[in-house]
Amino acid sequence: MVDLHFLNVQQPHWEQAFAKNNEMFGESPSEAAIRAADIFKVHGQERILELGAGQGRDTLFFARNGFQVHVLDYTKEGTERIRQKAKEEGLSDRIAVIEHDVRKPFLLPSGSFDACYSHMLYCMALTTDELVALNNHVRQVLRPGGYNIYTVRHKGDAHYGQGVHRGEDLYEVGGFIVHFFDRAKVEALTDGYEFIDVHEFEEGGLPRKLYQVSLEKRRVE
């Protein structure tokens, strides 16, 4: 059983973390963003929805590389930081930022994006039911043939099974709750999509072990 109280108090925890460190994840783009950008370019996908952008290291990378980026993030600290960076770099015309909790439906037109990108958003404090709903929200705003590329920490990660168990495959380590994935969970989140691939990679000093999942919205549903 999932303890929803602890999942619901993650937002202020992230606010505090971002307030204490303006560059919590550094300024360089993630390996995941670099790989996603190459995929988007191959498929001519220019209008990108980014979910859970944090402080914008990947957002700025996409904008610098010619993409139009629309960001949804539920932290005030994160969204304000991204707007500030975009203004400083003269990229405000390429970056739109909205403070929004992705557990709620997106207030965006259907079929309005070429692709969606998120780095470790799917493995945040979200229940399986919330992940299913999130994947449906993404599919709704993608055009047919649009890509949904997301990353998650998987069960081969050193933190899996550590800390405090919060239900399902959710574990709290250092105050942050992570939902760890296996291949079965990846495959379960493909309704309305064509499964493209799973790329395994590592990030950070632990290192964190991740999947990068690529899905394509079905052209005919």
Rank of each mutant, 00 (worst) to 15 (best):
E89W: 06
E99C: 15
Y122T: 01
S112T: 05
E99Y: 11
P109V: 05
P105E: 02
R83L: 15
K87N: 07
I95H: 01
V97H: 10
R103P: 00
P105R: 05
S110E: 12
E88P: 11
R94Y: 14
D73S: 03
V69T: 08
I95V: 14
H100M: 08
I95L: 06
F67T: 09
A125P: 03
K104Q: 07
F67E: 08
P105Q: 04
E88A: 14
E89V: 05
S92N: 10
L91M: 12
I82N: 00
T75H: 08
V71K: 11
T79I: 07
G90S: 05
A115K: 08
I95F: 00
I95C: 00
L91W: 14
D93F: 12
K104E: 14
D73C: 11
V69D: 02
E80A: 06
T79V: 04
K104A: 11
D114G: 02
G111N: 03
K87C: 09
P109Q: 06
R103V: 00
S112A: 01
C123D: 07
K104D: 05
G66P: 00
E89R: 14
E77K: 05
P109G: 03
P109Y: 06
S118P: 04
L91I: 09
F67D: 01
T75R: 00
R103T: 03
G111Y: 11
H119W: 13
K76N: 14
M120K: 07
L91Y: 05
G66I: 03
